[in-house]
Design a protein around this nucleic acid. Structure first.
Length: 597
RNA sequence: GGCCUCAUAGUUCAAGGGAUAGAACGGAAGUUUCCUAAACUUUAAAUACAGGUUCGAGUCCUGUUGGGGCUACCA
């Protein structure tokens, strides 16, 4: 947005000179000129009318005239209704492009760190079942937002919180004990998390069967659901776990170990990492001292049965339980404790929780309680709330087998990438190892881009079949465009055309060239906005725009066959910057781009 | 019931209170004299409904309808 800032400065001078006045910053509304009009930047004059005391057209004309006579970078202007469209000289855009060329880490690494630490929690799986579609959205968002924050100068700490304890974990353990016959990932060849997940499903099946049996015996349904023998066994197992029963702990460690190894494979395939992993079995007792603090401050109240509550009705919320009557804590209490622990440990300036929007209320309450406890840093917590992923057939329910498994989905994407590439004969010149790398990049790129291009907070529809369409606004279109530009540049190098990065000065840019430079100069602004809004979607749509605009440009203008050497040189340097920005932008989405495909 | 959220072409997504609401897929019709046709061009097609605020509303406010979520001594 350098051009905007430039024009805003000049407009300030113009207003001072013409009307002898100064206006607040937000009164000068500058935007990109719509495609159907001539111009680069546009001033909306309505907010200036009180200052100019003229009609919109008159104001626009006066300002336009002033700019044209006093600012050499302004080539010409036109006025339509209250809009002043300003066209800048080619030389302005050339110098803008030269700035980009000269910056090593254009848009992705600020000159200096902000010295601010931000913690990003994402993924946060349960250890009783494999990762699914919803987790994928979480993981991709968490990773991408972390990269974007880094690009904005933050020191990012990526953390995972594994929910490795509780009744649901005991359910799969119990089912394995009963029906597993000693099956292990090694003996069965199954991925650990999938194996454990199967026993979780098995438990549910058995649980339902036992309910039906009880109902048949004349027990009421509600009562039956609570008195099912297998559920009572699971509860007993949880009790023994909490009592640190050696046999149970050993089983728990073994089965969780299988799951972790399974998760690690999935994380690796998705290309994500964590700086630190927290386990709920370590943290579930945290938060009790906060309860004491709250009671002492009078923020919490203890009821006659010993349970502890916080009353948030004055804030428009409900009462919330923090300690059960038996003295054990609940999810909220643990989360409060965990947040406090992390703050004490890291003194973060921001803490981003990537968690689904079904927990909006939970986080609202969490932040409010932390604030009531007197923690100013509660305001630095941001719940990156994302919408559900829906399937064309309807809701995903893990117990009903309508989930899309993360590993299966990745396989499907990569396999489709392979068969499409083979069909098009793309790998004829690549070694098997290179081809393998490329199809992984394509398959995963398609998946990641499809998920991340959607505004996080919106519910999105994921159609596995459609996502593997490699046409249109997709990751593979961008990867392909990147590979093609690379190919042009290789050819240019072979022909020994313009090796250096010094732009010629006296050339006239056409519309598409100017547009490309405009888009390129916008990159840092987009990265910054994406960071402010925690939204990779802004970057995804930006890169698509860049790639598409290049394709349009290249359809009409030549590079290798261009006769004018100065123009040719400009176009080669421009192309270099485009591939650079595409590559860096995609990296912020966690997507790698192949050199050839 | 209460609270939160969403509603844009046939479909999936865009649009910091600004001009004639953009793309993509699918439909119709075209285009290989520089790279790699996974491309490009043209074309038909949308702001759920009713009010309000504003010079100006897809965007803000109110109501209606419809979808989703939350409202556990589960996590």
């Amino acid at each position: 947005m350098n051009a905007d800032k430039f024009i805003i400065d000049k407009l300030n001078e113009a207003i001072q000179s013409l009307y002898n006045a100064q206006v607040p910053q937000n009164f000068i509304q500058v935007q990109r000129t719509n495609r159907e009009f001539e111009g680069d930047v546009t001033l909306v004059t309505f907010s200036l009318l009180k200052t100019s005391r003229k009609s919109p057209e008159q104001t626009a004309n006066e300002l336009g005239n002033w700019l044209q006579t006093n600012v050499s970078e302004v080539e010409r202007f036109n006025v339509i209704k209250g809009f002043l469209n300003i066209k800048l000289q080619s030389s302005f855009w050339l110098s803008e492009l030269q700035c980009i060329v000269n910056k090593d880490n254009y848009g992705v690494k600020p000159a200096n760190s902000l010295g601010q630490r931000v913690m990003v929690e994402y993924s946060s799986p349960n250890t009783n079942k494999p990762l699914h579609m919803g987790h994928i959205r979480n993981i991709l968002l968490g990773w991408s937002v972390s990269q974007i924050l880094k690009a904005n100068g933050y020191d990012v700490v990526m953390v995972n919180l594994v929910n490795d304890r509780g009744i649901h974990i005991c359910k799969s353990m119990l089912a394995w004990q009963k029906f597993g016959n000693g099956e292990t990932p090694e003996s069965s060849g199954k991925k650990g998390d999938h194996l454990v997940g199967e026993y979780y499903v098995r438990f549910d099946k058995e649980y339902k069967a036992q309910i039906n049996q009880l109902v048949k015996q004349g027990v009421g349904k509600e009562e039956a659901e609570k008195k099912v023998p297998i559920l009572l066994e699971a509860q007993e197992m949880l009790r023994r776990w909490e009592a640190k029963d050696l046999e149970i702990i050993k089983l728990w460690e073994t089965m969780n170990g299988w799951v972790y190894r399974g998760f690690d494979i999935t994380y690796e395939r998705l290309g994500v990492l964590f700086d630190k992993t927290y386990y709920e079995s370590d943290t579930y007792l945290l938060g009790k001292d906060l309860v004491e603090r709250g009671l002492a401050k009078g923020v919490f109240v203890k009821k006659d049965d010993g349970s502890v509550w916080v009353d948030l009705t004055a804030d428009g919320l409900d009462q919330k339980l923090l300690l059960r009557s038996d003295g054990t804590s609940v999810y909220m209490t643990q989360d409060l404790g965990t947040a406090q622990q992390r703050f004490d440990e890291y003194h973060f300036n921001k803490h981003v929780y990537v968690v689904g929007n079904e927990q909006n209320y939970h986080f609202q309450v969490l932040m409010l309680i932390l604030k009531k406890l007197g923690n100013a840093w509660a305001d630095d917590i941001y719940h990156l709330s994302y919408g559900m992923v829906e399937l064309p057939e309807g809701k995903m329910k893990s117990r009903e087998g309508t989930v899309v498994d993360a590993d299966d989905l990745i396989d499907e994407m990569v396999n489709t990438a392979r068969s499409m590439s083979e069909e098009l004969g793309k790998f004829d010149e690549l070694t098997a190892a290179d081809a393998y790398k490329v199809i992984n990049m394509i398959g995963l790129g398609a998946l990641k881009y499809f998920i991340l291009k959607v505004d996080p907070k919106k519910t999105m529809l994921f159609d596995p079949k459609e996502s593997i369409d490699f046409n249109g606004n997709t990751g593979s279109f961008i990867q392909y465009t990147h590979a093609r530009i690379k190919s042009v540049l290789r050819k240019a190098a072979e022909l020994e055309l313009s090796a250096d990065n010094r732009l010629p000065e006296a050339i006239q840019l056409n519309d598409k060239e100017t547009e490309l430079v405009k888009i390129l100069t916008n990159f840092p602004e987009i990265v910054s906005q994406a960071g402010d809004n925690y939204s990779p979607a802004l970057i995804a749509n930006y890169i698509y725009d860049l790639a598409k605009t290049f394709n349009q440009f290249y359809q009409d203008y030549s590079i290798l066959k261009e006769q004018d050497k100065n123009i040719q040189k400009f176009r080669i340097i421009l192309s270099r910057q485009i591939v650079r920005v595409i590559k860096q932008g995609m990296l912020l989405l966690g997507i790698t781009v192949p050199e050839k495909m």
